[in-house]
């Protein structure tokens, strides 16, 4: 118990002093996961909208499949992407393995299902009368869709926060695809994993606190912004 307390105190000191390595790892984590969520959103918001607004055969099955992939293990995603981008894989020529880009790809794939699924449920939560009203007020089809997405903005942003949380907190894909290279692909989770194994619990704790803080701060900022609009 004493050790944990001392560790916490030292961890806070590391953060307050803005230890260069801690800052560097934190920023990289933020960058990689923010990029992942942005890329995923660019795909998932339109895809979720398409699935929600169109009736087609197998729609229910598709949504079920998407929901099944919510809990896909991060190491499976890591393995899958690894097979594609390793030297022998179909995308081996791009030399992406063990780069931040590889982690981003892994995290995008990891959060695609949950983000798409959550956006579909967000749109489901919007009353059908909103669409009728938008159309009868002269909106075009795409204007009406944007109006509906706007009505669902709280739930859509909630989905984005959840996706970001899953991306920044996962360790499997980041480890397998990034390789935890110091100063290049080391992110918060892989660093915590490594430092804990090496016995540097203080650094691990500091990184853990930062990880939790980032998740909280992002969520608070977004909620404050939403309340304003």
């Amino acid at each position: 118990m004493q050790e944990l307390w001392e560790g916490l105190v030292q961890a806070v000191q590391l953060i307050v002093r803005l230890d260069p390595e801690v800052v560097e790892i934190s920023l990289r984590s933020l960058y990689v996961s923010a990029a992942a969520i942005l890329i995923a959103a660019l795909f998932c918001v339109p895809a979720g909208g398409m699935i929600h607004f169109h009736e087609f055969r197998g729609k229910k099955v598709l949504i079920n499949v998407i929901q099944t992939f919510y809990s896909i293990p991060t190491v499976v995603v890591g393995l899958f992407v690894f097979l594609f981008i390793s030297r022998a894989g179909p995308l081996g020529g791009l030399e992406l393995l063990f780069t931040p880009g590889a982690i981003i790809i892994g995290q995008v794939i990891l959060i695609l299902p949950i983000l798409t699924g959550m956006i579909i449920s967000a749109l489901n939560g919007v009353d059908k009368s909103i669409k009728d009203t938008a159309l009868s007020m002269g909106a075009s089809g795409s204007q009406a869709i944007w109006t509906i997405i706007g009505e669902a903005r709280f739930a859509v942003v909630g989905a984005l926060i959840l996706g970001f949380g899953r991306a920044i907190s996962e360790v499997g894909a980041a480890m397998m695809l990034g390789g935890n290279i110091r100063g290049y692909t080391r992110v918060l989770t892989t660093a915590i994993s490594l430092e804990t194994q090496r016995g540097d619990l203080v650094l691990s704790l500091a990184l853990g606190i930062i990880l939790i803080s980032i998740a909280m701060v992002v969520s608070v900022i977004v909620n404050v912004l939403l309340q304003r609009y």
Partner: peptide, 28 residues
């Protein structure tokens, strides 16, 4: 449809300000 308009039984307002609601048809 842009020469018509409709009001529904259950009042439907967008989750925006009153101003933005009334402005909507002109904005689109």
């Amino acid at each position: 449809r842009r020469r018509m308009a409709m009001v529904f039984q259950k009042p439907v307002v967008f989750n925006t300000s009153v101003y933005d609601n009334i402005a909507y048809p002109l904005k689109v």
